[in-house]
Amino acid sequence: MTAQTPTRFGYLRCSSLEDVFKAVADHGERARIVAGGTDLVVGLQGRRLDPCMLVDLVRVPELHGIEKADDCLRIGAATTYSQLLESDLVSAHAPLLQQAAVEVGSVQIRNLGTLGGNLANASPAADGVPPLVALGAEVELVSRNGTRRVLCENFATGPGQSVLEAGEIVVAFLVPVCHEHDEGFFSKLGPRDQQAISIVSVTFSGRRVAGTRRYESVRIACGSVAPTVVRAFRAEEALSGIELEPETLFRSSRAILADISPIDDVRGSAEYRRDQAVGLLRSGLEALL
């Protein structure tokens, strides 16, 4: 006995990048890339997506593996959150990614969902993306025409929209390895402590000037407060190079309000999101100091 629904679309399991390029070229816009499938399958179930061909790239070797090369970690796009959490390299050189990974979905989701998929979907609520942005990571996009690198913060252009061109695949991330004085946090407010979509997330990365309460190279990324994951430039400016004192943290953290443009939705109001963006930044910094 087989399942009872008629064929709605095709499926191709690709084992090389070339397979993927061919499939995408053959089917054009209605080809749909699938990696972990945690978002895509939900879309298929609700018929919000109606592709003609699913192109599964999870077995393409180039998309796997975590290795250190020079000053970067190269993380394959099909790396799952669980793999990120188990990686000693990530733990040593980009612990911020693990802080975020453990807050993605549930164990079951972390075993399926991939970092590449999280970026490619271009959801403003993605929890995997803000640490990439805060760490200044680049993403490697590959097509038949070649390879280009884009800063993760420049990848998404709107909800579900990105710079990804037709025929282009997210292959790997290049994450600068952290310096001994680099510190950071990923702080998420969700309706629950696991298995929750962010209402707001704030990720901070900065290099502490030894023996001070001063940070340089501050990068802050926020989730669920704008059409894409965004850098908080004003907040970075306000918090860089100055001695951070508990008494002034709140005032400095309020600079983030100029960086975000949240909306009301079913998970939270814009007002609460603004309030909490400040609060998460302030309490995260307090914990660092």
Binding site: Y11, R13, V34, G37, T38, V41, V42, Q45, L54, D56, V58, S82, S106, V107, Q108, I109, N111, L112
Partner: peptide, 21 residues
């Protein structure tokens, strides 16, 4: 989580896994 199974030893929700995979 009611459909949780082990896939190559790891728990996943079977409703999110395409059978073809």
């Amino acid at each position: 989580g009611a459909c949780t199974v082990l896939l190559d030893g790891l728990p996943v929700t079977a409703c999110l896994v395409l059978a073809a995979k």
